[in-house]
Amino acid sequence: MGLSNIFNYLFIISKLMSNMEKNLSDIKEKMSIIREKTSIIGQKMSIIVPGVQHPLPFV
C-alpha cells in the first residue's frame, strides 16, 4: 500500500465524518423543532379545564 493510498483513505474517512457531522446537526435541529411543537401542544392542552365534559359528537 502506497502513501497515496493512505492519503486517499484518509480523505474518504474525513469526508464521511463531515457528512455524519452535518447529518447529526440536521437531526439536532429537527429534534429541537419537535420539542418546540410538543411544548406548544402541551401548553394548549393545559388550558383545557380538567373535569369539564365535552359533549360527544352526534353520529
Rank of each mutant, 00 (worst) to 15 (best):
I33T: 07
S14Y: 01
N8S: 12
K28W: 04
E29Q: 10
F11D: 12
G42D: 15
P50I: 09
K30N: 07
V59K: 12
K22P: 03
L24S: 11
D26L: 08
F11I: 09
F58T: 15
I27K: 15
F58N: 15
L10R: 03
M17Y: 07
S25W: 01
M20P: 06
N19P: 02
L3G: 12
V52W: 02
M31H: 02
V49L: 04
I6K: 13
I6T: 15
I48N: 04
P57A: 14
I48P: 00
N5Y: 00
I41Q: 02
N23Y: 01
K15Y: 06
F11C: 06
M45Q: 15
S32H: 05
K22V: 06
V49E: 08
T38D: 11
F11L: 11
L3Y: 08
L3P: 07
G42A: 13
I33P: 01
G51N: 13
I6F: 07
L56P: 05
K28Q: 12
K22C: 03
E29S: 10
E21D: 05
S14V: 06
I33K: 08
K15C: 08
Y9T: 15
Y9D: 13
S39D: 09
I48H: 03
S25F: 03
P50K: 13
P57T: 12
I27V: 14
I27W: 06
I48Y: 04
I48L: 06
K15W: 03
E21N: 05
I40W: 04
I47E: 08
K37D: 14
I40Q: 11
L16P: 01
V59C: 12
N5M: 11
F7G: 04
E36S: 14
K44R: 13
I34P: 01
M20D: 15
I13E: 01
K44F: 07
N23G: 07
Q43H: 06
M31K: 02
N5P: 00
V52M: 05
I12G: 08
Q43Y: 02
T38Q: 14
S46W: 00
T38F: 04
N8P: 00
E21R: 05
I27Q: 12
